[in-house]
Amino acid sequence: MELGWFVKLRSSFYALLLHVIAAAMLIISLDLSPKSILQPKQNINIVNAVAIDKKQVEKELQRLKQAEQKKQETEKKRLEELEKKAKDAEKKLADAEKKRVEEEQKLADTKKKKEQEQQKRELEEQKLAKLEKEKEELEKKRKLEEEHKRQEAADKALKEALAAEEAEVQSEQAQELIDKITADIYRSVVNNFNKSGLPQGLSCVLRVQLIPGGEVTNVTLVESSGNSIFDQRSVTAVEKASPFQTVPDDVESFERLGLRQITFRFIPEE
């Protein structure tokens, strides 16, 4: 839980940090835009200047009309010249206009582009925010799952612990039972192991098969003492002691206690 809270806090902090970064980027980008469009500003000034020239041309035209009578030929020529000039100017104006429109278009485009970029940026930002949100949700989900899992594990552990505790109780009981059975088997084999007249310092090992109820079904000499009489007396002791009264009848406890096979080590003290 402590961890969860900490993780949550940490992710909130990341989110905040991202926002701050995004905002900062936006500010920086706005600040940068005028500098980046330095060229188009001069064009605008030119266009204004051209507009002032046109007014002067019209004034000249009126003054020229008044002096038309006086100077016909020259006037006409001058007019044509002027017209031509006007035409050029017009053309120039048109060009300028065209240029201005172009420039305007260009500016508009730039602006549009800029707007698009802005939009894009905003979109991206939105996207980012969305992603962040998704991420946050994922994180939250993950955390929840994690928490869930942890809970489950804890539950499981607790359950296991309880089961184990129960098993322990059972095993303690089993151990008690095994101890009792072992003591009983030991006693009855000892009471049937006749070492009268046998040389000292001998030992042998027998593997003995039991069935539920304690009856001996098979005795195998796995390690001889080297003295056949000693070996035989040991085998007889087990055979004579059979059945072992305390060995359970029911197969389940018989198996659980591992009584199917018992190893006997005959090593009488001197």
């Binding site: 072992t182 096979q261 018992i262 006997f264 080590r265 003290e269």
Partner: peptide, 8 residues
């Protein structure tokens, strides 16, 4: 299960 028979 191993049982040691140390007496007789």
């Amino acid at each position: 299960l191993e049982i040691i028979i140390d007496k007789g």
